[in-house]
């Protein structure tokens, strides 16, 4: 076998994969990028102008960002605390809890929405229980708060799974060395623990944000088209019963991708010069 020969017949084996991947992953993306600028038979920024002028679409954008930020930050905070807790728990228990986390991270979309209806819906088990104690009187799962709770719920296990390796990377010798140099628990976390975790936390935050912004199934199963989010709007523009506007959906899609890209860029910017991972 001659290695390094670039144009060998072996390359033919790549062709079927390349075809399928292009046709069903790259081409749709390219199509979206093009059709966003397609106006009638010409080209232009009309769809973006329409979106910018519409309070409805601006609201969708804003709410997507809002719920992504809130649920990602809350999810990151809770996941960090949980990982810290897990780092202090011994072998067997720890393995069980991590397996459980893995399990909950698989619980998403329609089944998740349904489970939350059972738990926190108008007649949900927890809703009834809490109302009996006079709490939660005006709570609705289908409101902004309700959605934020369910988003945060699915962000936590994902955040934990992403952060656990970083926590495992915290070496016990650092804590020991720090303690011999006079640092207590708080000083250790402030000067060493958190700074070392910081890049992973930022990376996790970016993934959580992307996850939240791209979420569709859970919200759709819960409130249908009744909560104004980017993904709901996009889906509605291509699959609603009336007024299909695929070009407008493409424009909104591009905006969504731009948002995700911007978040990644912000993260990279925040982490500039922090490449000290051993």
């Amino acid at each position: 076998m001659i290695r390094g020969h670039r144009w060998s017949p072996a390359l033919l084996c790549l062709l079927p994969f390349a075809l399928v991947f292009c046709a069903f992953q790259l081409a749709p993306l390219g199509y979206v990028a093009l059709s966003a600028f397609r106006v009638g038979t010409g080209w232009g920024f009309d769809h973006f102008r329409e979106i910018a002028a519409s309070t409805f679409y601006r609201q969708a954008m804003w709410r997507s960002i809002e719920i992504a930020l809130v649920s990602s930050l809350a999810g990151l905070l809770i996941a960090t605390l949980a990982c810290y807790g897990l780092s202090r728990v011994g072998g067997g228990t720890r393995r069980v809890l991590i397996a459980f986390t893995n399990m909950t991270s698989n619980f998403a979309g329609v089944p998740l929405a349904f489970a939350f209806i059972i738990l926190l819906g108008a007649n949900g088990a927890l809703t009834l229980a809490l109302q009996r104690f006079g709490l939660f009187e005006s709570f609705s799962l289908y409101s902004r708060t309700g959605l934020m709770i369910i988003y945060t719920w699915f962000q936590v296990p994902l955040g934990m799974l992403l952060l656990l390796p970083a926590f495992a990377g915290l070496r016990s010798e650092w804590r020991e060395a720090a303690s011999l140099l006079g640092a207590g628990r708080v000083a250790y976390w402030r000067h060493i623990g958190l700074p070392v975790l910081w890049p992973s936390m930022m990376g996790t935050l970016t993934i959580l944000l992307a996850n939240a912004i791209g979420t569709y199934a859970t919200v759709f199963a819960l409130v249908g088209n009744n909560y104004n989010l980017l993904t709901i709007r996009i889906a509605n523009l291509v699959s609603g019963d009336l007024f299909l506007q695929p070009e407008l959906a493409s424009a909104l899609s591009l905006i969504t991708i731009a948002l995700l890209t911007a978040m990644t860029l912000v993260q990279q910017h925040l982490l500039r010069g922090r490449t000290h991972v051993e």
């Binding site: 069903f24 992953q25 790259l26 081409a27 749709p28 993306l29 390219g30 199509y31 979206v32 059709s35 992307a210 912004i213 791209g214 569709y216 993904t231 996009i234 889906a235 291509v238 699959s239 695929p246 959906a249 493409s250 899609s253 969504t256 991708i257 995700l260």
Partner: peptide, 18 residues
């Protein structure tokens, strides 16, 4: 990474039209 980076809803827009 692309399937992770592109939300399914966005891919669907292109797929539906293509």
């Amino acid at each position: 990474l692309t399937p992770f980076a592109v939300p399914p809803v966005v891919s669907s827009v292109g797929l539906l039209q293509l």
